[in-house]
Amino acid sequence: MAVSESAISTPPGGRGLSLTSKRILRHLAILATLLIVWELSTRLGLLDELTFPRPVAIVQSMYELYLVQGSIWWHLFITIAEVLAGFAAGSALGIGLAIIVGLNPLVRRFLKPYVIVLEATPRIAVAPLLIAALGFGWSSKVAIITLVCFFAPFVNTLSGMLNVNEEAHQLFRSLGANKRQIFMKLMLPDATPIIMAGLRLAMASALSGALVAEFISANEGMGVLLKRYTASLNMASSFACLLSLTALGFLIFRTMEAIDNRVVFWRKDERAATVGRRRAAAWHRKMGA
């Protein structure tokens, strides 16, 4: 049934609802059923209210946290700021270092063993050490996220640098291109898809990194809030925090996906067609002028 429904689209202007709204409705129905069952089981004492707060209670504390108290906004902001700062620092460092290493065989040989050792070290294990070194403030959190965000962009950029198509390289050389041109016009754009994949991985782990860092030690941020509510057995608010983090994670994922699709437009037929049309228009404007 699911197969035939996703394979056949309703004709435009046909009777009833469109396929997507049907699908959304179905999922809403499933979700509503789940929530009602959950709500009822807690009310009837089948689920322990202490560990599984009622959905209604969660919604209530959502309202409380965001609209009455409002301090959650600050914690959310702190966590997002940490994630962005750590991600920016980690990926800039990873990409930059990989480019240096990739372009220079000597550096490559010299650095390789250290990179391997570093990669074998579980990143989070370094967190307490970083906190000891940098204190409980902002910088240690950002440093931990930086560390978490460093490797995927580094490894991916490096493999992009080292796997440049040999014939394309020869082509550039036969055209008399210099090193800078080969880097800017061939190696960098050629490595972009794999670099973007690295950035997406990094971003995906940045939020977890931030929360772990905040769990270990911090006095603000969503991790702190979550820990505080759990410790005081305010489970409804804990779940509200968790829900907020899920939404944040989803937003981050979608944003990275959208950026990826824009940057690496040539991998997606539709995007490529759009960009092609735009470039054609720009070309004709230039030639006409």
């Binding site: 198509n165 014939e167 394309a168 020869q170 082509l171 550039f172 036969s174 055209l175 008399g176 291109a177 041109q181 016009k185 061939l186 754009p189 050629d190 972009t192 437009f265 040539w266 092609g276 470039r279 054609a280 070309w283």
Partner: peptide, 25 residues
């Protein structure tokens, strides 16, 4: 000028941008 068994075009450039590459260098 040289040409290979594989076209070795730059995927992120349109045909005409690929053709212009030698000039751009």
């Amino acid at each position: 000028g040289m040409m290979f068994q594989r076209a070795t075009l730059l995927d992120w450039r349109t045909s005409v941008e690929n053709v212009l590459l030698p000039t751009e260098i």
